Simulated assay, not measured.
Amino acid sequence: MTPAERKHLAVDLRSVCMRISRRVRFSRAGQDTLRPHQVSVLSKLDKQVRTPRELAEIECVSAPSMTRTVNALVEQGFVRRDADPEDGRQVHLQLTPEGRKTLSAIRRSRDEWVYSRMVDLSEEECAVLRQAADILERVVAPQ
């Protein structure tokens, strides 16, 4: 493949990945109460307690913007704030049981959307997608 063909492939991959991401983000579960950036924050708290500063850095947003997002999630009962036992000025954020349940429902809905688009694919096409998923994992892995 020539460098020009690789660049064209990169554009095509970026475009299709963005379209899939957009469609999946706006699936039905949680859309009445949560916006995509809020779901993203919930997912960052799924396996790890984090500070608002850590979340702002991960999400590439300002501290005030993250504060608004966190406040909304706390008000809705999806996130809990806990004071750091060693530094009372520091706040730790974690999912509440309701936040965990909601995140799980959103993920299930998103997975179902993707699955619904795959049901008519052939075995061979599914095998290609399996390979593509493995390759894309390598593409997005930290270097």
Rank of each mutant, 00 (worst) to 15 (best):
Arg25Thr: 05
Val128Met: 11
Asp120Arg: 15
Lys7Val: 07
Ser15Ile: 02
Arg35Cys: 01
Val139Met: 15
Ser109Gln: 04
Gln76His: 11
Gln31His: 01
Glu57Gln: 08
Arg68Asp: 07
Pro36Glu: 04
Val61Asn: 09
Pro85Met: 02
Asp87Lys: 13
Val61Asp: 08
Leu34Met: 05
Thr2Leu: 14
Val16Ser: 13
Ala63Val: 13
Met66Phe: 06
Val139Asn: 06
Arg107Trp: 05
Ala4His: 10
Gly77Trp: 06
Ile106Asn: 07
Met66Ser: 10
Val91Met: 08
Gln90Ala: 04
Gln143His: 03
Ser27Cys: 10
Pro52Asn: 04
Ala127Arg: 04
Glu57Arg: 10
Glu54Leu: 03
Gln94Glu: 02
Val39Asp: 02
Ala72Asp: 14
Ala63Tyr: 08
Thr96Phe: 02
Phe78Gly: 05
Val41Asn: 00
Leu129Asn: 03
Ala72Gly: 10
Cys60Pro: 00
Arg23Met: 08
Ile135His: 14
Leu13Lys: 03
Glu137Cys: 06
Val41Gln: 01
Gln38Ile: 08
Ile135Lys: 15
Ala132Asn: 01
Val79Met: 12
Ala127Val: 00
Tyr115Leu: 15
Ile20Gly: 11
Thr102Ala: 14
Val74Leu: 13
Leu129Arg: 02
Leu9Ser: 06
Gln94His: 02
Val114Gly: 05
Val24Lys: 11
His92Asn: 14
Arg108Cys: 12
Arg19Ala: 14
Tyr115Asn: 11
Glu124Ile: 11
Ala83Ser: 14
Phe26Thr: 08
Ala63Gln: 06
Arg25Tyr: 04
Met18Gly: 02
Leu136Pro: 01
Thr69Pro: 01
Arg117Met: 11
Ile58Thr: 15
Lys101Phe: 04
Asp87Ser: 07
Pro142Ile: 04
Gly77Met: 05
Ile106Arg: 05
Val140Ala: 10
Lys7Tyr: 03
Val140Met: 12
Leu55Ala: 10
Leu136Phe: 08
Val39Ala: 05
Lys44Pro: 00
Ile20Asn: 06
Ala56Asn: 09
His8Tyr: 00
Leu103Asp: 06
Glu75Phe: 13
Arg25Met: 13
Gln90Gly: 01
Gln48Lys: 14
Arg100Ala: 15
Ala127Leu: 01
Arg107Gly: 12
Arg117Ser: 08
Gln38Ser: 06
Gly77Tyr: 05
Arg81Gly: 06
Thr33Gln: 07
Ser40Trp: 07
Leu129Phe: 12
Ala141Val: 12
Ala133Val: 10
Gln31Cys: 00
Lys47Thr: 14
Met66Leu: 13
Arg110Met: 03
Cys126Tyr: 14
Arg6Met: 15
Trp113Thr: 07
Asn71Leu: 08
Asp111Tyr: 12
Glu98Thr: 01
Leu9Gly: 03
Leu42Lys: 09
Leu103Arg: 03
Arg6Trp: 11
Arg110Pro: 00
Ala63Asp: 04
Gln76Ile: 00
Leu9Cys: 07
Ala105Ile: 00
His92Thr: 03
Tyr115Ser: 14
Asp82Thr: 15
Thr102Met: 12
Ala56Ile: 09
Pro36Tyr: 07
Leu136Arg: 02
Val140Phe: 14
Val41Asp: 00
Asp32Trp: 02
Glu112Tyr: 00
Glu123Arg: 15
Pro52Leu: 00
Arg107Ser: 11
Ala63Pro: 01
Ala72Ile: 11
Ser62Val: 04
Asp84Met: 07
Lys47Trp: 12
Ser40Lys: 07
Gln48Asp: 09
Pro36Met: 08
Arg100Ile: 03
Ala105Met: 00
Ala132Ser: 04
Arg130Ala: 07
Thr51Ile: 14
